[in-house]
Amino acid sequence: MIDHTARTGPGRPEPAPAAPADGAARPRAGRAGRDRPPGKSLRARLRRDWQLLLMTVPALGLLAVFHYTPTLGNVIAFQDYSPYRGFWDSPFVGFDNFYWLLTDTSFWDATLNTLTITVFQLVFYFPLPIALAVLLDSVMSPRLRLFLQTVVYMPHFFSWVLVITLFQQIIGGAGLISQLLRRNGYGGLEIMTDPDAFLLLVTAEVVWKDAGWGTIIFLAALAAINQNLYEAAAADGAGRWRRLWHITLPGLRPVIVLLLILRLGDSLNVGFEQFFLQRDAVGRQAAEVLDTFVYWRTLAVGEWSYGAAAGLVKGMVGLVLILVANKVAHRMGENGIYRRT
């Protein structure tokens, strides 16, 4: 349905209407709300809407308990927390934990690793779903295209344990390719235990798992490009590659900019399980990222307050990055993850 309206729309793809973003601030919805006759008393509105309110209770209750309560629990970052004394009786120590954290070189190593991975994947992962989407879009047979889509989306639904296990079986030290090499008198592959190759390895895994799934949004944007533009360009003598450059890529531009900004806003998150699972094999020098730092340096050894401080710093910096990225998106005339009201 979204597809349909988009396809018949103007040349530039409209931002898809179902973005999570538009939540609170969907303009049409907002107006409809304000247009209701004023002066309806609270009691009248309660009588009208109590069933709706009741329906939101289970989900909001779960969020209150499992999201907002632990958010408040971050006070332990300012304490010398011990489970025996609990939240109420643990002494407050101000910003001590943050001081220790910011002078801790292993924290900065983890931060550097995280940012390196982000930048590397922006260069070597980010363009691939775009290229793959253009390629899939050029497949003329609908059946073949559906088959290809089915196959390339699939690995997105595999768990990280599974993906890493599959990689081990094929390119690991005891994997299929290593077996083949050894039988022919060569040494086995050591990609999966080599700290220097770790950046390549994790990027290859992300490509295998998610590049296909990542095409969905670009395929939608491609479908929204006005076909008449292509026809007119072809009539004017523009070949395949010129059409790609002058029509396809400009048509994808809004989506590309949006995803790029979102990814930058999310710089501190490179995924947790992928690194947790491979940290032992390559060592922490290469594989320690911020999330695994919180786990191994603190939770695993019971330094609760220190770990909470590290988590809080990451959360706050991440929040600022998202807000800044969103602001930049608005400045550039794109829709961010939310709209201003």
Partner: peptide
């Protein structure tokens, strides 16, 4: 926008 964090 904001997760509660692993430890809390």
């Amino acid at each position: 926008l904001f997760g509660p964090g692993m430890i809390p």
